[in-house]
C-alpha cells in the first residue's frame, strides 16, 4: 500500500502541489485525472523521488520513502515521452533494471526477451529504440518498467499519442499485466473516459 501524506512541491514561489495526499492499495489502479499543467507529472516525480518535496511523507507498506533515493524505492515509471535510452538496443533497455541488480548478461537478456514477448514485441530485441513507432516505444517503456519488478508502477499518460485501435488494446493489456503482477499502480491521464475504463478509483486534480 502506497501512502502519500500531505506533500508539498514548489518551484521557487510557485506551489505545484499543496499538501496533497492519496492512498493506493496493492492490485489496485488509481487514476489521477486533470488538465495538463495541473501537477500530475510532478506528483509522479515526487513519488518516484526525483522531484524534491518540501513537506509531507511518502510511505510504502509502512516504510518511509521520503528521503530515500529513487533507485531504492522499487517504484518504476513509464514516462510520458518514454525516455528510452537512445544508445541502447530495445533488449538492453528492457534489461537495464536487471543489469543494475547485478544479473548476468545472458540471463537478463533472456528475461527481457520474454517480457518483450509479453508486450507483443517478440523479435524486436536488437532493434534500435530510435526506429520504433509510438506504440512500440510505449510498450518497450512498459516492459522496461515491469522488468524492474516494482512494488508500485507509475504510468504518465501511457496511451497518449496512440491511434484509437492501439489505445484500446494497450489499455486492456496494461490493466491485465498490473493485475497479474499484483502491484499498485497510479495512472495519470487527461482523458476522463480513459480514467474511467482502467481505474478502480479516480482522483481529480485541478
Amino acid at each position: 500500500m502506497l501512502t502519500v501524506d500531505e506533500i508539498k512541491v514548489s518551484y521557487g514561489e510557485q506551489v505545484i502541489l499543496d499538501h496533497f495526499s492519496l492512498i493506493v492499495a496493492d492490485r489496485e489502479i488509481l487514476a489521477v485525472h486533470g488538465p495538463s499543467g495541473c501537477g500530475k507529472s510532478t506528483l509522479l516525480g515526487a513519488i518516484a523521488g526525483f522531484v524534491p518535496i518540501s513537506h509531507g511523507r511518502i510511505l510504502l507498506d509502512g516504510t518511509d520513502l521520503t528521503t530515500m533515493p529513487t533507485h531504492r524505492r522499487q517504484i518504476a515509471m513509464v514516462f510520458q515521452d518514454d525516455q528510452l535510452f537512445p544508445h541502447r538496443s530495445v533488449v538492453d533497455n528492457v534489461a537495464f533494471a536487471a543489469q543494475m541488480a547485478g544479473m548476468a548478461r545472458r540471463e537478463r537478456r533472456a528475461m527481457a526477451s520474454e517480457l518483450l514477448e509479453t508486450v507483443g514485441l517478440g523479435g524486436f530485441d536488437q532493434r534500435s529504440v530510435n526506429e520504433l513507432s509510438g506504440g512500440e516505444a510505449k510498450r518497450v517503456a512498459l516492459a522496461r518498467a515491469l522488468a524492474a519488478s516494482p512494488r508500485v508502477l507509475l504510468l504518465d499518460e501511457p496511451l497518449s499519442g496512440l491511434d484509437p485501435e492501439l489505445h484500446g488494446r494497450l489499455s486492456t493489456e496494461i490493466v491485465g499485466i498490473v493485475a497479474a503482477a499484483g502491484i499498485a499502480a497510479i495512472w495519470v491521464t487527461h482523458d476522463r473516459a480513459e480514467a474511467r475504463t482502467v481505474a478502480d478509483h479516480i482522483i481529480e486534480m485541478d
Partner: peptide, 17 residues
Amino acid sequence: DPRLRAAAATLGAGPIR
C-alpha cells in the same frame, strides 16, 4: 534530457551509476 537519469533511477540505478 535530465529525465533520462530519472528513468535510470526508477529502474534501480544509483546516482553515480
